[in-house]
Simulated assay, not measured.
Amino acid sequence: MYQQEDGKPFNNQQPPSAAATGFPVSFNSNTSATYSGASTTEYVPPPPKPLVDWSTGLCDCCSNPGKSCITFWCPCITFGQVAEIIDKGSTSCGASGALYTLICCVIGCGCLYSCFYRSKMRQQYGLKGNDCTDCMIHCCCEACALCQEYRELENRGFNMVIGWHGNVEQRTRGIAMATTAPAVESGMNR
């Protein structure tokens, strides 16, 4: 180790406040550092949006008796359609429905899986409820819960039959068609 002229050891290290990044390593509450270009105002997040009610009630199954019957006899179909929309197309209707059926066959209770999708749907659309009620609704009346979720997505503008990708294509095609003039075809002459 080398010594300076005054006999103290020579230290090549820079103090922590002069690190290569230019930011102090430690912060002392007694001192305040202001960086050039930094704003002194604090970021205040916007207030949360108020929760909204479901568009239909839990027992409004009579509005679509065909879907209610399908859901009662084969809930995997309705669950698959709902799950595809909620997952924004990352899982297909068939894969979600098959997994739901597998869970029903293995443990006999698909509601344990479907109640998580109800919670996910509530969070995406700001719907009233909580995780406990989601679980209770699915455990007590699975068919009514799935039908309510299906109706909610339909009322939000989704065509449940064509799935997520079909809805996206339909919406982008609608936008593209609205911005371009229709092609004029020449008619047949007699």
Rank of each mutant, 00 (worst) to 15 (best):
T41W: 04
L153R: 01
L99F: 06
N12R: 04
E149T: 04
H165P: 03
P47A: 14
Q3T: 14
E169I: 09
A33N: 05
L127D: 04
P50S: 07
F10L: 05
D60H: 09
S63H: 04
Y35G: 03
T21I: 13
Q4D: 11
R122I: 12
G110P: 15
R190Q: 12
G163F: 13
S29P: 15
I175T: 11
Y35H: 03
S32N: 03
A95K: 01
E149W: 03
R171P: 06
T133E: 15
G174V: 14
C62L: 13
V184W: 04
C115H: 14
E42L: 13
C111W: 11
L112K: 05
Y150S: 03
M160G: 01
K128E: 14
A38S: 09
P9H: 05
S186A: 15
G22P: 06
G166M: 14
V184T: 12
S92G: 09
S26M: 07
I107K: 09
M188Q: 09
C76T: 02
L153M: 03
G89C: 07
M121E: 15
T41Q: 10
A83H: 03
C61N: 09
T41P: 01
S186C: 12
L153T: 00
G126Q: 15
S186K: 15
P45K: 00
C105D: 08
I85K: 01
Y125F: 15
G129Y: 08
R190Y: 14
S32V: 11
L102W: 06
A18E: 15
G129P: 05
G89K: 06
A33D: 03
A181P: 10
Y150G: 00
R118F: 05
N167L: 12
I70A: 08
E152I: 04
Y35T: 01
L127P: 04
S63P: 00
R156P: 00
R122S: 12
G89R: 06
M121D: 04
S17W: 12
C59Y: 03
V52L: 05
C105K: 10
C104M: 15
Y125E: 01
S36D: 08
R122T: 11
G80C: 11
Y117G: 04
G22V: 10
T180C: 01
H165I: 13
V184N: 06
I77Y: 11
G89W: 06
P182V: 13
M1L: 10
W54P: 00
T41K: 08
P9S: 06
K67P: 00
W73K: 08
K120Q: 14
N28Y: 12
I85Y: 00
M1P: 10
F72K: 10
F23S: 02
F23M: 03
C105T: 12
C147M: 10
T34F: 07
